[in-house]
Every structure is written in C-alpha cells, then in structure tokens.
Design a protein around this nucleic acid. Sequence first.
RNA 1: GGGCGCUUAGCUCAGCUGGUCAGAGCGCCGCCUUUACACGGCGGAAGUCCUCGGUUCGAGUCCGAGAGUGCCCACCA
Length: 849
Amino acid sequence: MTDDPKAQTRFDPAEAEPRLMQRWLDSGLFDAPAEGTAAENFSIAIPPPNVTGALHMGHALNGTIQDVLTRTNRMRGRRSRWILGTDHAGIATQKQVEKRLIEQGTSREEIGREAFVEQVWSWRREFGGQIIEQFKRLGASLDYTRERFTLDDDYALAVQKVFCELYDDGLIYRDYYMVNWDPGSRSAISELEVEDREVTDTLYEIAYPLSDGDGEVVVATVRPETMLADTAVAVNPDDERFAHLVGRTVTLPLVGRTLTIIADDYVKTDFGTGCLKITPGHDPNDFEIGRRHGLGEITVIGEDGRMNEQATRYAGLPVAEARERIVAALREQGLLRGEEPYTHTVPFSHRSGERIEPLISLQWFMSMGELAAPAIEAVTSGRVQIHPESQSRRYVDWLENIRPWCVSRQLWWGHQLPVWYRGEDETYVGMQPPQDPGWTREEDVLDTWFSSALWPFATLGWPQDTPDLRAFYPTDVLSTARDILFLWVARMVMMGLRFADNVPFEHVYVHSVIQAPDGRRMSKSLGTGIDPLEEIDKHGADAVRFGLLAMSSTQDVRYSSEKVEQGQALATKLFNASRFVLLNVQPGVAAAPRPTTPADRWILSRLQHVITDTSRRVDEFEFARAALGIYDFVYGELCDWYLELVKGREFDEDLSATLLHVLGETLALAHPVIPFVTEEIWDLIPATEGLLAAGPFPQGDPALLDEDAETQIGAVIDAVRAVRAWRNEAGVPAGAVLPARLVASGYEQTAALVARLARLDLEAGAADPAEAAASVVVPGGAAELLPAAGVDPQEQERRRAARRAELEGEIRRAEGKLANPGFVAKAPAELVATERAKLDQLREELAAG
RNA sequence: GGGCGCUUAGCUCAGCUGGUCAGAGCGCCGCCUUUACACGGCGGAAGUCCUCGGUUCGAGUCCGAGAGUGCCCACCA
C-alpha cells in the first residue's frame, strides 16, 4: 500500500475472492488428517445437497453457519473437517434425466433400465459438480478432497449391510399395505413427501338401497368412483338413528355387490350423513377399518392412475372421467341424493405435484418402534442437544408416534434392494447375489432417505473401522432447516445409534428459513427466489455471509438486502481502517498490546469484551449477535473512536505495536464470518506470516480488562458527543475551533482528546476570563463555551430552557418513585440509593443551570 | 381439531434471568470534500413496545383473555 491518493480504498471481492479461495485450497488447510479422537477434533457433515441442485438461499445460510463453526474451531487449533458430498436424490434426479430423454425423443422405458442408469451417471458427471463449485464461491471451507456421493460403491455397501442386518433382525419386512402412491413418479412415496393442499371438490350423497327393499342408506363421498371397490357400509355403534340397520345388507349400485352394514367408532355421527361407505382398497382409514372387520380389499384404480379391469365397464378411464360417468349413471337411476361444493385438504406428491392415490400394494417396510426408543432417549438425556430447545419436543413427539416406514420406491435411480425372489414364495436377502439359479432381483430401490440416514458414518468409511471414523465420529454439529428434522435428522440418530454405536452428532442447530422480502416463501415457481450467487456478484461473499447471519434468528425471517449491504460496508470499513493503520505504523514493529494512554487501555479492554462475547455467541449458535457484535466493535469502537483518538499522536513503537495487535485480533475474530476481506488484509500486513484462516482465534486476556480506562474514555465519548450536538444545533461552522473551559472532573488525562474531537481550544479558554456564553453538560461537569464567532447566545438560552424542562421531568419521575412507600420498602436498597443519588444530582444541576 | 411461534420507529428486525431497554441497520432531515474510508463523517427527527385485564413497589419484559399473522401436526367421508 502507498499513500498515493488514488490508492485502492475498497476491497474488490470479484478479484480477490477466487484468488484467496485458491490459496486456501492449495494450502491443504481444509482437509484435516484423520488423526486423534473425535472428542478432540471438530467435524460437521454437510447436509448433502441434491446432485442436480443449484445453490439457493437456504444452502447459502446453512453453508455460512457451518463454515463459521468450522473456521472458528479450526482457528482454535482443533483438527476440523467439514465433510462434503452430494445426494443421489432418487426422484428429483430421475425426473431430470427423464425430461432430457423425452426432449431427445426417447424415454426411460424405451432405452431400458441399464441404459437409463448409465444416462443418469453421465448426467451426474456433467452437472453434479455445479453446486460444489458454488459452495466455493461462498468461501465454504469444506474438505473438497474427500467428496462423497450417496451412490458411491463403498457407500452402497454400507447401505446394503444396514438393510441386510435390519432384515435379519426382523425390522425390515415385506407386506401389503396402503401406501401413498404417486401416479406421477409411479412410485410409493413416504408420508413425509406428501403435502396437503386445500381443494374444492363436490361432496356427493348417494343412496344404497337395502337388500330387502325396505328403504336405503345414504352415504357421502367426494370420490364416487371408488364406490366400485366398496366392501361395506359403516355407522357409529352409538348412533341410534341407524342401530336397527347394523348387520343388515345393502346392494351396491352399479355393481350389485351385497355389502354388510357394520358398526365402527371411526364413523362420526355429526358429519356427512352418518353413514360411511367403506373402501379398503382406496382409502387409508377404510383400510384400517377393513382390517379390523376382516373385509375384502378390492382395487379398482391402477398404478397409472386409471381405472383397472376390476372396474368393468369403466376400465381404462382416467379417474376423473370415471367419476363423471358414475355420477351420471347414479343420477339417471335416481340414486343421487345430494351434491354440494366441499373444501378439504387433499394429499399431493411433493415431488411430482400429482394428487396422491392411496393404493394397497406389496412394499418393503421398516419397523420403527425399536429404533425410535434409543433415539428419543438420546435427546431427552441431552446426548444430542437440539437448538433451539423448543424443537426437541417436536422431535420427541414425532418419534413417539412413529409408524412403519415404507422404504421401497418404484424407481430405477437409487440403491436397488439386495433382495431376490424365486418362484412364489422364496425370498433371499443378502450382500451377495444367490449362487444357485432361478432367482430374480427385486426391481425396487430404496427411499433416498434410507441412504441419507447413514450419512454421518457412511461418509467416514463405515462399516470399516477407519481412521476417519475414529477421528471424526460422532460429528459435533448438524445444522439444518426445520423441514427435515424428521425426514432426515431423526433417522440419522436412529441409524447412528444402531450401527455406529454412538449418536451421529452432539448438537443439532435448526436455523431459520429465509423468506422472500414480501414474506412469501422463496420459490422458483412463485418467482420469489433470490439467487445467492447474484448477491455474491453484487456485494461479495463476505457481505452475503454477514447479511445472512445478521438477518437470521430462530424465527423465520424475510430476506433483507440492507443487512447484506451492512456486511459490505463492514468489509469496506475494515479495509480502510487497515489502510490507516498500515500507512501510519512504524516498520518492523511486532504486534503486541503496549498501551501508554487511557485510550490504548480502553480499546484493549473493549477488545477483550468483543472477543469473549463473539466466542460465546458462536458456541451458543447466536450467529446474528456474533456478526452484529463484530460490526458494532469495528464501527462503534475501533473506527469511530479509537482511530480518531489516535490521530494527532506520534506513531511511536508502542502505539504501532498496539494498533497492529488490535487490528490483527479484530481480523482473526471476524475471519469466520467474513473470511475473504480479513485474509486479504492479513496478507497486506508486513509482519504476518501464513494464513489467517490457520489461526489462532483470539482468546482474550482478562488482564487487559480496564474499568478505569473504560470510565475515562466513556466520559470523553459522551462529552464529545454532547459538544458536537450543541454545535450542530447552534449552527456553529463545522470547522470552527471554539475557546472553551472544561469545568469537569475525570478529564485529567484526556482533556486534550475532548478538545481535539469536539474542536475546542482549552488553552485559549483557560486564558480568557470572560463569562461563559454557553454551558454544555458533560459527565462530571460541564464544558463552558466562551463568546466567539458562531456562538449564538440565544441558542444557549433555548437549550438551557429545554434542558431545564427535561430535568424537571426527570426529577418529577424520581420523586414520584421515591415517594412510593412500596418502592422504598421493597426494592433492593442499592437501587433506592442510586435513585436518591440521581435525584440529588438532577436537583443540583437544575439549581446550577 | 390440536401444538408452536410472531405482532417494538416509515421498512426489516434486536431487546437473555422484570428496575437507564425504548435500540440497530436501512430510509428521512440538516451540516461537513476534517490528510483510512463520500459504498464516507458528524448531528437530528421519529414509536400509546397489537388491545383489554391481572401479578408486582415497578412490565415490551411474567400470567390470562381477545384481535391479527405465520408455521407444524392430525384419518373427519
């Protein structure tokens, strides 16, 4: 740097960030060796982004959070590894590739499974690296040398081993069950991938004639087409209106089947007609009822979302069309008793967007109760701590009510089940294919979350007992958004405890969701998304990182570009403050705290506070406070005051050493939040060697805390502010130096500082016997301004009157408080004494002024 | 239908264990090219802390009710 006025006064992120990232990568700092124990090391496993994905705001926030934790702990000297990888994301990836095939005029079915899977792999080779590169833009200090993928060969072995062991233990089994069938992806999907949407349908009332011709029952339904699969009608056992009907039969219209009227508690007496058609094949509740009563299970809708051959003359029709025809037929036969609009929530597939069709099918399930119990205990005992704590209850509630998990998916992209069948009833499950002939492999693949559940240990080489596993498992923190607490976090805890003999992480941090500025969800389809990469282009990665942390909390928050700009301002400020320091310090001086004045002692003391606060806030996941606390120190203390106080002094060795010390500590403290600009400045300081990212992180030195200096400089700050405010209101020209006397105690060592920053001439004032033209209250007394050009006596009078009114108000308040017998009797004595002293002081000032 | 949050300056938000807590950033107004920074500095205006009750000597801060708003869970045809 030079003192050339044209010298760079701004940090240029676009130029510097890629260069600095490359330096970090080349240094090998991010790939911590597999040495030592997990207790002494620090690790985080990144929530693996979808291999098809692009960096969105959630990634950017979560990436920043994890990076702050990793960088802080790395600088503290712990071997720190942030484990990187991507998820094969079954449905999403398969859909992308299918779309491309269709654009190419072919299809998945046409090219066959083997070719299709090869297509997906080549797709991954082509596009899978995108999001990794985007994490680099953010400055994420991930271990890029050990990128993992949930479909890697050794990862697949881990998945198969888990599957086989759970099967051998009887926790994985095959069963007919009602599943959420997604006609879009032609696959069963988990209840966690279902989203409910409000839909207005028509609620039809249909008459089912009693078989003996003696009347009818009327049922209500929004899905008349499923009546073809009805196997009973149910009423509530306590419903007197229908008690006489239980046990009798009706004839199912259009079909002619005879249905028994059964009694079941599930039926509400105050909803619909009080009579419920039971369709075990197409409704989850009816399925349960059917199982209770041993009813038949008829299926009339196929996996393609069309009526099947059981639906006789409606076979092959899409569901909606079948419905219309059935309603028409009923109307014609005079059996339609009512028809009205009805708004209710209906399940849709989160992935394909199509309406879920509940179907009975043969699927693979995982029994969860036995796995859930230890996972609950891990959290209630505190071995896994969830932050904020309120999320723990949701976690426990969910696990306590957990149901079997359908783990099979009818996809081609994923971990194919290690299951083979022969004939009607032979099943083989194993790591190796059966050697004898006649076996065919199960076509289904596992739910993507099955492999994700193994992430924290499968990435470290499990089931081998690897050095990586010993050095980094369990990990320290898992940072995520709320929405996958169940989908993923709970399952990782279960699997970790079952297979890796320990919890997968000690802390779960649930971060906020960043919404669009107008409060809507950020989403591509709504057009409300903000691209973090564009924000990085505009403001720099440091600014985006700072902004995201500053705006985040445990609450969902709206995206605030002001906070990003605040971060950019911080980077610029720090850059220029550093220029000032480097332009003035003596060459060859080593950084060290060598205070010679109250101001030096003050900044060192303030530095200790911000160091302890920041360190604690990071450890307590208070990222917004950590970021804003750094901002407040840099702006409100270092730049606004210390650097200004220091001007006018000779930059001797002591001062140079102190300035370099404060600067260096500040850079290290801020580095985890704004790594680029701090590393760049660090590199510009002549005396420093190596990377700032390599640490150390400031520890603070309690011996440098200095209350006396804080009081003295606190008074200087207040006094300067008071005089400046007075000058501004009095219209004193900004450059004018006013003769004045400082009639106040506590400024023995600092009067000159007040004079310089407030532009007062105390020597001229002392020599001048004239009566004060104005008196400005400052801590410990007053600054008396003498008559001079620009000092307006009327302004003084106005201010005096305003101050008097203010004093009177405060005196009334204090008097009232002290006149309250309750306050004097019950409030702490110390507080009462303070109040009395305050009152005395106020009265004194009023009398004087 | 349950459960959990939120409602503080024009905007976005801090305010932890009740007593200088009425704050920050942006915006707005005024002044300043003061030799680190005009993507700057200095100063200023601005809020019945959603409403109503209660606890307390004292409440944005605790309790209850209500209004508004958001999220999660749930099988009402």
